[in-house]
Design a protein around this nucleic acid. Structure first.
Lengths: 231, 231
DNA sequence: TCAAAAGTGTTTGCAATACACCCATGC
DNA sequence: GCATGGGTGTATTGCAAACACTTTTGA
């Protein structure tokens, strides 16, 4: 395909930046890339890029994530559009921020064409963002915290089969606060979105936890009935 | 100022569309303009326009509202960015939607340069929007419904001094459902965001209602203390 | 005196919270 | 047998919801 083809023309004053969250080792993480070029060469930044004339913003976010991390079929949601006139040093670029959720175990990382490296970074560790990426990150994390209380997201961050403790750890690390085990289980099970499996953890030196999976049909039904939950 | 001045250069692939809500005669209304030019000439559409290189999106929304309606110092909030490739017929334009709240009594309307007319239209009456303005409107109304339950907005839609019944009517017309008078008063007063005045309605042929005003200091204090409310 | 809206408390049920011990497993 | 996390129930509290009559005012 030629570069002059309209479908490949880029819109150079509009970019997409993705805040990709993952969960590993009981910790919430964010995906960062090491920038290949100036401005901000060698700094760890949010993955992003420009959009094409032929694609929507959602398309662009999906494409950019595939480029940076092989990531496909993930939870994706628009967060906010950032427009300070000096947010990008070289010229006026307005950026649309996306929030994405990825299970790190399912997706190997590879740097895209504009990066020399990619990594998962713990959210609670300090990050020295370039540009206005701190602001973008803060807003995305905030939105994630709201979402996790009102929508059954978070399952995207876990393996298909998971224990209730894993799920609780995920909630706690997103919200940054601890919750009561019994009360959490009561609530989450009362929503009937989880199916208990006849499978248990293996190779642990303590009682093995029962595994569950998310029942998206049951959830869809609840939603269609106008059900609203609050975790 | 010359048109060649950088501060007046427009970014022609990025627009702002405003969904401006007002409240009059116990009804939620939306501000519409009659388009002067094609595409969509003579149709009633959401007010909007292109942004300048020198301004943020928020700036642009404020400017565009002043141009269409003399409106100043109003509640303004970004909603979502719309990017279907064919959403605007002439060329690729991505649009950032804003939600604004205005007290119609405080602001006389005047058509801006791109409109032949402006009006307030009842939200519950059918509107035949051009382009993707229906989608934009739906999303903004949805966001307003969420906001009104978790933030003390809505006061911008009322006169400075208002009765509890007025406030309740506003809530009901935003949410599109009725609420219990006693319960509503209990909740709203328990938040201590309202100051009762020693003033009463005048010229009504029934018992005069007490007037209240919003206490933004008290609210700020509550917020700083991490208080979260849900109406 | 009538019409029209303002104003006012109590009861009930549900949902959130707080809280502590026994169970299964691998080493 | 011990260390480690898994798993479970009840009592209390606070909040939301339902609900009807009296008061004030102007016409």
């Amino acid at each position: 395909m030629e570069l002059t083809n309209v479908s490949k023309q880029i819109i150079k004053n509009l970019s997409v930046d993705c805040v990709v969250f993952g969960f590993e080792n009981f910790e919430l993480e964010v995906l960062l890339i090491k920038r290949k070029l100036n401005p901000g060469k060698d700094s760890w930044a949010l993955p992003g890029g420009f959009i094409l004339k032929s694609e929507t913003l959602d398309d662009a976010a999906v494409r950019l994530l595939e480029e940076t991390s092989n990531v496909k079929n993930i939870y994706l949601e628009q967060v906010h559009t950032f427009s300070k006139t000096d947010r990008f040093p070289l010229r006026r670029v307005i950026s649309v921020a996306y929030l994405a959720l990825v299970n790190p175990e399912k997706h190997s990382l590879k740097p895209g064409i504009d990066a020399t490296d990619v990594k998962w970074q713990k959210v609670k560790d300090p990050i020295d963002f370039p540009f206005d990426h701190q602001e973008i990150f803060d807003r995305a994390l905030n939105q994630l915290r709201k979402r996790v209380r009102t929508k059954p997201i978070g399952f995207e961050l876990l393996p298909e089969k998971f224990s209730l403790t894993q799920l609780q750890n995920l909630y706690e690390s997103i919200l940054g606060e601890e919750v009561d085990k019994r009360n959490y289980r009561k609530r989450i099970l009362s929503l009937k979105m989880l199916v208990p499996l006849n499978e248990y953890q293996k190779g642990v030196s303590h009682r093995a936890a029962r595994l569950y999976k998310f029942d998206s049909k049951a959830f869809k039904k609840l939603k269609d009935e106008g059900f609203n939950f609050q975790l």
